[in-house]
């Protein structure tokens, strides 16, 4: 009796999950079929019908339209991710293992920086960027993303490094290692997983960011989000293009998630469960 009830509820559960998964995938379905329609075939009434003949030209056009902004995004996201992860790692190491007077006070002040709405620093920011001559290009955007990425990277590394027992460090001291020695030979070799988590997080954040991108980059250095928003928000939209563009813009981060998602979740939890 109990067994059968369990089996039925199991079937029911499985069916419900499949249904929900379908619902979650509806936007993907619609995006893909719309991106494969010729502009003339796009009709609100037949939005749900797949195209009779896939119209690959949407993607060819989208690729040529977005080539330069995709390149910008790649350069931006990769360099800013590497830099902010490296800085976050060394900061996390110091704030975790080399507490200096006032460090307890500094940490919440640092972490606060990751929650602020960027509107509240936007105008002074671009005036400052202009003054130091970094306004408009990719180096400036990289700097901005590195700085505003510091709070989260520092916090994540710090919570990872808290797991490294202090006794291990003590032993290293006895062996004569100094500040950098311990980092180089003890901490860094243990930092693989946190680097992966931080890199996934930062890469998606920077790749997906819009406000800085739209205000701080000259047209030639626009990242993909701005290019997509411009295309989709422009006049006379033929929807196959924004949809193909969405697929292109989404692809890198989706691939990262599907391949590395489990590390990412593990990393998120390290923070969340403690908090």
């Amino acid at each position: 009796m109990y067994q059968r009830g369990a089996r039925i509820s199991r079937w029911f559960l499985q069916a419900l999950l499949i249904l929900l998964a379908v619902v979650y995938l509806i936007p993907v379905y619609l995006t893909l079929i719309t991106s494969l329609k010729a502009p003339a075939d796009i009709n609100l009434m037949t939005a749900w019908k797949p195209p009779a003949h896939p119209y690959w030209a949407s993607y060819a056009t989208a690729v040529s339209k977005f080539a330069s902004s995709l390149k910008n995004s790649v350069v931006l996201a990769i360099s800013a991710t590497i830099l902010s992860a490296a800085l976050g790692s060394i900061n996390g190491y110091v704030l975790c293992k080399w507490e200096f007077p006032g460090a307890r006070l500094v940490l919440p002040l640092v972490v606060f920086g990751m929650f602020i709405p960027y509107q509240s620093i936007l105008v002074p920011l671009f005036q400052f960027m202009r003054r130091i001559g970094l306004y408009g290009g990719l180096p400036g955007l990289v700097l901005v993303h590195v700085v505003y990425g510091l709070p989260i990277t520092t916090l994540l590394f710090r919570s990872f490094y808290a797991e490294i027992p202090d006794e291990l460090l003590g032993a290293a001291f006895i062996d004569g290692a100094d500040f950098f020695g311990i980092y180089r030979w003890l901490v860094l070799p243990l930092s693989g997983p946190p680097f992966l988590v931080v890199a996934i997080w930062q890469f998606t954040q920077i790749w997906n960011e819009f406000l800085f991108a739209v205000t701080l980059a000259r047209p030639a250095y626009q990242p993909i989000t701005v290019a997509l928003a411009n295309l989709a928000g422009g006049q006379a939209v033929s929807w196959n293009l924004p949809m193909a563009g969405s697929v292109l813009a989404a692809l890198p981060t989706v691939v990262v998630y599907v391949l590395l998602g489990r590390y990412f979740i593990r990393g998120l939890l390290a923070g969340a469960l403690k908090g």
Partner: peptide
Amino acid sequence: RTIFLFPMSLSFIVTGTIWRWLLQPRGG
């Protein structure tokens, strides 16, 4: 898990663009 989680990896711009199309009053 992957299906439910992947939207999180998208940019709000992508999500917005897609859903704008889904929520067209005479379509979607």
